[in-house]
Design a protein around this nucleic acid. Structure first.
Lengths: 231, 231
DNA sequence: CGAACCCTTGATGGCGATCAAACGCCGTGG
DNA sequence: CCACGGCGTTTGATCGCCATCAAGGGTTCG
């Protein structure tokens, strides 16, 4: 692995606290690879050979069944992904493909499982990361079950705004068709949902969204402070 | 804590591998409590004070938002629950209530977090449990996003049958209204979904379900061997 | 025996999917 | 440089799944 990315990756919550020599052991057996856009990294059902760390770029996690497909998550740099499959050594429940050109660190899965046993700090970080991921999934599931499409969109906008500093200006990082799939709807209906929110405090201009009336938006989508982890 | 339940609880994957004295430390500060049916154990947004272990009975995990509510999971004995909230020390994302009269072991959350740090075996078990819980949530989310109601019901029946030994006879442990909520539909539509599956290889008699034509059922619901963790 | 409550069945309505077509953007190739 | 073609987005029309509303049957429990 090239040395340039090391500090960046070593600062990740997952690797931050572990012993230096163990981290070196992991990194020295890993390799950084560049993938073009729209490339499938792995598919549902495959055996996990590597823990993935997205260093740069954008990755979609998605699932398919009986011809239908849906986006489960969008991974932004710098983040590790599919940790659960690596830890349990069980087949992937999702497929992954690059959205944009991406640099990904590939860490041999067996090595991760081994080092985790030897280094309690890494294990603790793994535990925390999984707990967080679990909670994110609970949020996603309740969102899907309890809210209808325009509400889901509105809450996502509020959440993104919060993460981007609460400026009231949100720039979409992905195509809208992907956003639609993440929200569990069709591109057509996402477009209509934007239309609905247009009279509820937001305005849209291509990928640029502006929250013009936050109170109106919140009144409509009823964000749940606990569940959205805002505030 | 009474001594009678100890072996049963100590055999749980979560506590099985840990050091005996650490386990004793945990159990000696915990207490077993009996709750009547329909009692709320905790609510969304509260701070987690205890790790719960359901020793006997049945518990529903559910979420509410804007007047609507939905079941996220049904906990059967003997299982621990809300481990993620305890580990992260963050507010509950779900509420919990007893379905039936239940005996629950309450383990102080702070103690869990402390002992986890001291006992690597417990930490590893926690990590595995969280990874498994995460994967279950991924399955639930894809199920909800990709399948329609009768398919979800059919897959749940196949899954239950598998877990109960693959005899082709499944007995529902809960009221159908609760099952409907777990599957993300109304009781009325669950009833209709049973009707649909009636011509697809199952027959229903109260809480007793019989798979009369497994091939027909599987052809209709298209179970995903990876995702359902059958086979 | 009556009163809940659960389950079922029917009628209706709404949300979102599907089908279809037009617009705009962007890249390529003539 | 412009024409063309492809793709993503938008808008409209229609359809289907599921929710809602309503009512009746069965069971349980006071």
């Amino acid at each position: 692995m090239r040395v340039a990315e090391k500090p960046e990756i070593a600062k990740l919550p997952l690797f931050r606290e572990m012993q230096d020599e163990q981290r070196e052991r992991i990194f020295s057996s890993s390799f950084l690879q560049v993938f073009p856009p729209q490339l499938t990294l792995f598919e549902l059902g495959q055996h996990p050979d590597f823990l993935h760390v997205l260093v740069d770029g954008l990755v979609e996690l998605y699932a398919t069944s009986a011809g239908r497909d849906t986006t489960i998550g969008i991974v932004e740099a710098v983040t590790s992904f599919i940790l659960a499959a690596v830890v349990t050594d069980q087949p992937y429940l999702m497929s992954a493909r690059t959205i944009a050109s991406s640099r990904i660190l590939l860490v041999p899965a067996a090595l991760v499982r081994e080092v985790v046993k030897d280094d309690c700090a890494l294990m603790q970080a793994t535990m925390r990361e999984l707990a967080q991921a679990y909670r994110d999934m609970v949020r996603a599931l309740t969102d899907m079950k309890l809210r209808q499409s325009a509400e889901r969109l509105g809450n996502l906008i509020l959440q993104q705004d919060h993460r981007q500093g609460g400026t009231g200006k949100v720039r979409l990082k992905t195509e809208k068709r992907l956003l639609a799939s993440l929200l569990g709807m069709t591109p057509e209906n996402l477009s209509r949902a934007f239309g609905v929110l247009g009279s509820r405090g937001i305005s849209v201009n291509g990928p640029q969204i502006t929250i013009s009336d936050r109170a109106a938006l919140e009144a409509f989508v009823r964000p749940d402070p606990v569940r959205e982890n805002l505030a």
